[in-house]
Design a protein around this nucleic acid. Structure first.
Lengths: 253, 253
DNA sequence: CGCTTGATTGATGCCATTCAACATGGGTGG
DNA sequence: CCACCCATGTTGAATGGCATCAATCAAGCG
């Protein structure tokens, strides 16, 4: 088990006095925000940002910390400013499935619903822009631009999630690992072949994403290395040597 | 392969003259609508319904007909009025995965996006309330109530889809079939134990939902019958005899 | 009736899991 | 800086669950 803390107790609030800052200072928090242009708040103007900001706060997380738990009351939502987090569910007897991985500018939490449908845990150190759900829901209902952004994001998430179901239900271990590597390198290094990338995930986490065991993931990776398709460097480093063969491997054994 | 037709050619438009009806007649199409109170148009007033209705039309489908194809341009969206349809994707070599099943009052199609992410095929005869995507997108952007409904529906879909990923990635064949039967009976007959229900799906379709083969589904079902947990009647009939044991079977082997 | 389609049952093999031993490497304290 | 340690990852052998291939059965239908 990961070391996991209750957010309210252990998450370090970055600006404890944020709520009492002058409006200009609060707005500037958004003005500096690295992800705002891609996040759901992109279309809001200064006054709106100010109003939304008044209800939220920035929060830092350490790798391994869980922000919300599957089944809990849905009390908070957030934008990811920095870092990578996993969304996961598990069976009664402890088998876990990662149902999503989120990156900076992504939105987490369950607006307009009473229950948190899955746990959210930081894979790396991370920073969030956090809002109480009730306040966010109210604000969103009054700002169609924001709801529209949220809708588009949710529709994209749904498409990606459904595409992943094909992998989980119908692909072999080899196809799964190949698909994962392609997906990952595209996200982390959109234009590099032959360049080494650092996976933000352990073998266990890869296994939980792909619906496999650690050992199977490991075996598939070393087999691909043996075939000269990838190169492995340390625990997290991977280098795609032959993207074409990897792609072929992802779709038809 | 199913018998599949191009919608534009073969779908029977129910009211060919709908677009030229007086407004009152068009509104009454909605006034009579059996699913409106549960569909995304529930919150619209008479004039709004009229405006939306002007862009749409009612369409009937036969079981097996495909309404849209994975990868096609996204040109239409629709409400399901009657019947059951499947959403599916497949690999290059023909393995299929059903990524969703929709019922009356559900919404299908990909608004605000250029591509259809999965095929939509009628499992039973069905009726749709169909809109061109462009017109629908425009109307939705001008009616936040509608977008809000659509957002809630999409959020629910995403939750359900992610829950299904746990089944696909981590459950055994027996757990999968048990989970499916519970899910299905809850939907079709919310309060009946010991009552026979008619599955709207063939074994092949069950297999495509669960990420299994026909034979495995069949074996699991007969094994459950042998254990006295269910009773089988003909091809589609199932009767839950011991809901508690079935539930236990769904979560921990 | 024979034909067709869908479902069940059986026999066999393979792939992924399981259990276990071993390697590696990142971190810590002496 | 090295020795040690623990977590993480790799490798091996054996088992078993699900797929595959194939035959049989059961319905519906001309």
């Amino acid at each position: 088990m990961d070391m996991q803390f209750d957010l309210a107790q252990s998450a370090r609030r970055e600006s404890p006095a944020a709520n009492s800052c002058p409006a200009s200072a609060r707005v500037s928090a958004c003005a500096q925000c690295q992800v705002r242009s891609h996040a759901i708040c992109a279309d809001l103007d200064g006054a709106e940002l100010d109003a939304l900001n008044r209800t939220g706060r920035r929060v830092s997380l350490r790798a391994g910390q869980t922000v919300m738990w599957e089944g809990d009351d849905s009390t908070i939502v957030a934008n990811v400013i920095e870092g990578t987090l996993k969304l996961s569910t598990s069976t009664g007897d402890g088998r876990e499935q990662i149902v999503g991985v989120v990156y900076p500018s992504d939105f987490i939490g369950r607006p307009f619903g009473a229950r948190t449908p899955h746990s959210v845990t930081a894979l790396t150190d991370a920073r969030l822009c956090l809002f109480p759900r009730g306040a966010f829901d109210g604000f969103a209902r009054e700002h169609p631009q924001l709801e529209h952004r949220l809708l588009q994001r949710t529709l994209d998430d749904l498409d990606r999630t459904r595409a992943w179901m094909l992998l989980l239900g119908r692909k072999t271990a080899r196809e799964k690992v190949a698909s994962f590597l392609i997906d990952m390198t595209r996200r982390l290094d959109p234009d590099g072949e032959g360049v080494q990338i650092d996976l933000p995930l352990s073998r266990q986490q890869m296994a939980d994403i792909l619906g496999l065991t650690i050992e199977t993931v490991s075996r598939q990776m070393t087999e691909m290395k043996r075939l000269g398709i990838i190169e492995l460097a340390g625990r997290r480093g991977v280098c795609i040597l032959d993207e074409d063969r990897l792609e072929a491997m992802a779709e038809a054994a």
